[in-house]
Design a protein around this nucleic acid. Structure first.
Lengths: 238, 238
DNA sequence: CGTGCCCTTGAAGATCTTCAAACGCAGTGG
DNA sequence: CCACTGCGTTTGAAGATCTTCAAGGGCACG
């Protein structure tokens, strides 16, 4: 069990390149915590006092504006870092972190980080790589939101989810996170109604099969065609 | 001249906290380059082989999708870092950097960075802080784009520009960068037509005064009211 | 077996884009 | 000096896309 755990940790990009001893030491400084589904780990605006690593389950990071409209900034699964920003800047959390399902996280208090980075410098590098990667993804989604139609954005979001949380099942790839239509809308910058309509349409075409908080992608290929605007056959031009 | 230059460098967040000797040494490893207006420094997808610091002038970072629609990811003025991502990750530039006006940049080749960070560790910290700050801004703009109407987004963009490139003039604050309606549209995720209409309307209300590639904000207060949706007087509710 | 949440679908309409046409200023070349 | 040309801008009109609101269905869970 303890060994399985170490293997899990070694798989996290943040802890990549650490020796088993280092791994044990770093893990030893962390606190483990399990959240129930829908439980909140931290809120946007709170003092960023810790760095988190997801061990199992999924967290969603959301921002909301003054009117209460929410946006999902990111969904983080096993091995993912949460609040990487707190590792380097002395600020507040830029988003709210909520468990989508039962989720276990490790946390390192902010004060412990400098010492940690001093003893295991590669950790700082790993965290920065994560941050860079994330920046890239955020920019990409920003561009999508600015230039693309809803349909394409939903296709892309599903493809990303397939990549990050896909599980092969009988009739396609199941997105193995319980996401409501509303969640998908908040991921893509639209409304739950539009998501519902688009999914219904795709269901009729045999591209996906969806039910309550569940989507199975039957034909990823078709989604790619929509995302990239490769007209499948007889599609109306832009 | 050389002294003025050092003072300029010391003002850049990236070089904050360095002693004059360190400053000289770090600057000594950099190459200076001046770009004409509209000249391209690097392109999205090129190998990220250097880190840049803007000394004078302004660069705009853009992404474009497969159809050629462009988005302005960021505008960087004096003291700002460019391609901070290349400092830590071994990848390609995530955006294209083009000079808005005549612009001077310092550049450090990627290979020189590890040595640089070893000798002056605070540089790495500074770069990360910049990256964190940027991440925060990007997330904020993402949320805006997802949840807010065009009018508000334009108001916010102008306010940001006032903060970053504002210069007091007789009748208000001039945004001291030559930005076309198209540029403003690409900053806010809309079309140049909509930007033009909104500016015309605001001009009629005395909030701004705009001409060719030029905007003077006469009443920042009114823009804040629009951005925050504090109904000024008799506004139609959302 | 009810109750609540999530989802679907329709209809109406707001917002924003698209396209077309024309203006005006700046710089160029005659 | 002036006309020419190009680019950035303005404005109108038409219409696509997406949101909003309302109503109802269905599945899961207590």
């Amino acid at each position: 069990m303890r060994e399985a755990r170490l293997a899990l940790l070694a798989g996290a990009p943040f802890l990549h390149g650490l020796s088993p001893e280092e791994l044990r030491a770093v893990a030893g400084l962390a606190t483990e915590r399990t959240l129930r589904a829908r439980q909140v780990l931290f809120r946007e605006g709170d003092e960023a006092d810790a760095l988190f690593l997801v061990l199992g389950g999924r967290m969603k990071l959301t921002q909301s504006d003054s009117d209460g409209r929410e946006v999902i900034v990111r969904i983080v699964g096993p091995g993912g870092l949460l609040a990487a920003v707190s590792a380097f800047a002395n600020t507040t959390f830029p988003a709210t972190a909520q468990a989508v399902e039962s989720t276990t996280v490790l946390s390192w208090p902010r004060e412990a980080l400098p010492e940690l980075f001093r003893r295991v410098p590669v950790l700082a590098l790993n965290a920065m790589e994560t941050l860079s990667e994330r920046m890239r993804e955020m920019q990409e989604r920003f561009r999508e939101l600015a230039t693309e139609r809803v349909t394409r954005r939903i296709a892309r979001a599903l493809l990303r989810l397939v990549r990050e949380a896909g599980r092969r099942v009988e009739d396609g790839v199941l997105i193995d996170v319980a996401l409501s239509r509303r969640d998908l809308a908040e991921l893509t910058g639209t409304t739950l109604f539009t998501v519902s309509r688009v999914l219904s349409e795709w269901e009729a075409e045999g591209i996906v099969k969806s039910s309550r908080q569940r989507v199975v992608v039957r034909s990823p290929h078709a989604l790619v065609a929509i995302a990239e605007d490769l007209p499948p056959i007889g599609s109306t031009r832009r």
